[in-house]
């Protein structure tokens, strides 16, 4: 597992994360019913401390708007009911597409890293 110290030393990680955060959140939701801030805690657990709190909410709004999740409301001690998310069929399709794209991209990046030039076709 990555340490938060190691990650915080890398500049512009939030820029790189923007493209993949939605997929990461969908993956977390796919495993179990979960509420918004609990997702932040899971991401913090991966060492992504301090860079996701602000953006996870925006991504959650987008995921909900795109109808990728089923929402169950449960009472909360803080007043308004709390929303718990589970992935629906459309969300599962989107997640599968994300992992396909990720496999494609990571394979090519790794190849570029090994090959060093990018002149040779994969």
């Amino acid at each position: 597992m990555l340490s938060s110290q190691a990650v915080s030393g890398i500049d512009n990680l939030s820029e790189m994360l923007k493209g993949v955060l939605e997929g990461m959140i969908l993956q977390i939701i796919s495993k179990e019913e979960i509420y918004g801030y609990e997702i932040v805690k899971r991401l913090n657990g991966l060492g992504l401390t301090g860079i996701v709190e602000g953006t996870v909410y925006t991504v959650l709004v987008r995921i909900e708007k795109n109808k990728l999740v089923t929402i169950t409301k449960k009472p909360s001690a803080l007043g308004p009911p709390r929303k718990f998310y589970t992935l629906n069929e459309r969300g599962r399709e989107e997640l599968a597409l994300f992992w396909e794209k990720w496999a494609f991209l990571s394979e090519r990046i790794e190849y570029l890293k090994q090959d060093g030039s990018g002149k040779n076709e994969l």
């Binding site: 918004g36 709190e53 803080l78």
Partner: peptide, 14 residues
């Protein structure tokens, strides 16, 4: 509004 209130409360508590 309710969502953001809860989310923010969780974050402040954390």
């Amino acid at each position: 509004r309710d969502d953001l209130t809860l989310y923010m409360s969780d974050y402040v508590a954390d």
